[in-house]
Amino acid sequence: MKKQSNQFKLVLGLIIALILLIFVVLNVEPVAINFGFFQPKMPLIIVLVLMMLLGAIVSWLLGNSEDKYKVNKSVAKQEAAMKKQYEKTIADKDQKISELESEIDRLQNKENSESSKD
């Protein structure tokens, strides 16, 4: 299921990238970009490509941090469940050991009482 979702995202991303690329190639006129202190003139294609790259980088950075949070949350849940299961297993084993020790004591007492009767 997750593999299909990733494939869908990849195909959708490639389609959007192709549309953007066509748009960029159609817009090659020089434009002035205002950075406040200076206004360089550069072809619109360069501006658009740079903005697409910056947008992709920002999306990737934001997407990665969210995924890490989800993964860490999932791992924490799994660790808690495993710890609970481990503690339950230990408690069950301790109870079984106590029962077996009691059984050994009972059998030893029974054996001692029989040997003293002889």
Rank of each mutant, 00 (worst) to 15 (best):
L61M: 07
K117G: 04
V28S: 11
L14R: 01
I19G: 00
Q95P: 00
I45E: 06
F23A: 10
M42D: 01
D92S: 13
K117F: 15
S74Q: 13
K77W: 03
K96L: 12
F23Y: 14
L53Y: 09
E114V: 07
Q85C: 08
K93C: 11
D118W: 10
A32T: 02
G55K: 03
N109Y: 02
A76I: 01
V11K: 11
L12K: 03
K73F: 08
P40C: 02
Y69G: 05
S113I: 10
K70Y: 15
Q4I: 08
K88G: 01
I33A: 04
E79S: 06
L20A: 09
M82K: 08
Q95K: 02
W60G: 02
A80Y: 04
A91C: 04
K70I: 13
G63W: 05
V11H: 07
L12T: 04
F8H: 11
Q85P: 01
K2H: 06
L12Y: 06
K77V: 07
L18A: 11
L100E: 08
K77N: 14
Q39F: 06
I16C: 03
V75H: 05
K9W: 06
V75T: 10
E103W: 05
S102N: 13
S98F: 09
S98D: 10
Q4H: 08
E101K: 15
N6Q: 12
K96Q: 15
I16Q: 02
V31Y: 00
